[in-house]
Design a protein around this nucleic acid. Structure first.
Lengths: 140, 140
DNA sequence: TTACAAATCGTATTTGTTACTAACTAGTAA
DNA sequence: TTACTAGTTAGTAACAAATACGATTTGTAA
């Protein structure tokens, strides 16, 4: 979920989080990324502008974003966590071979999912919908 | 997916796996469990009958069951993997507080899910459908 | 500007999982 | 039955992702 710095700053301050250059950089990157990056990946990106940034700060900022409901953590076997900034109902299409993740989102999906929820009669606080596939490149 | 020992033995032998008492015990427990147990949990159960059983053997047997397509591994933040022996399309209703997992399965779900797949136009090799909730006990 | 709570960085520690190896055993074929 | 062999087990070491910790720095409110 991309947003302006002002919007982001308001959200952080309103929740009692301080605004630091590192946080802004991390949030801007993660919230606009479609790659579902790992902590290492985020770190390798942010270190370009903040050479002293610690991997720990990445993890802590992710905890903050999760707390704010702006990011969801996805754990997998055999690889490190991926962070997904798409908080609306969507399907993660995940390649079993190369681990690439692609979001799929549509009105139809939301509608069908809400019917599934209705049938289960639960009040969701979140969801994770994964489909495992072989992507086009890996299929060859 | 509960099955007789004979069925299980056939499946293992047909795939080139040897049948050992440890494997039978682990498989019988995991395949009939509805609890989505952790490796530690499985170990603490099997150790009652096989006092020398190693945690490593649990993990290796889970790898075998995953290879056979009889079990799915689910990783989560802040806790160890859970092993799900329900391989049909279903929704995992997961309590965010106590981590209890309950399966929900119905013809309606399968139908709606197949429509979602059709809309995405993918050939799935598996899926994981999680809904995060607060269970009745934790809601109080 | 000051004071203080919070954030950062660097590193140590923890923890779930995997890798390794010697001893053992299931399955097979004589 | 016996002997062989490849696969399995138990025990432990190694690994890596994530977390905890503490000294220093920084944001923010008074």
């Amino acid at each position: 979920m991309t947003m302006t710095d002002d919007q982001l700053i308001s959200i952080l301050r309103d929740s009692g989080y301080k605004v630091t250059p590192q946080r802004l950089a991390i949030c801007n990157y993660v919230l606009s990324s479609k790659e579902h990056p790992t902590a290492e990946h985020i770190h390798s990106e942010i270190v370009k502008k903040h050479p002293a940034i610690s991997l720990n700060t990445i993890y802590q900022t992710m905890d903050m974003l999760i707390d704010l409901g702006l990011v969801q953590e996805m754990r997998f076997s055999g690889s490190s966590s991926r962070f997904d900034s798409n908080t609306s109902v969507h399907v993660n299409i995940i390649c079993q071979k190369c681990s690439k993740i692609q979001d799929f989102e549509s009105e139809g999906i939301r509608e069908l999912w809400s019917r599934i929820l209705a049938e289960m009669n639960v009040e969701p606080v979140g969801q994770r919908l994964d489909v495992y596939v072989l992507c086009d490149e890996c299929k060859r």
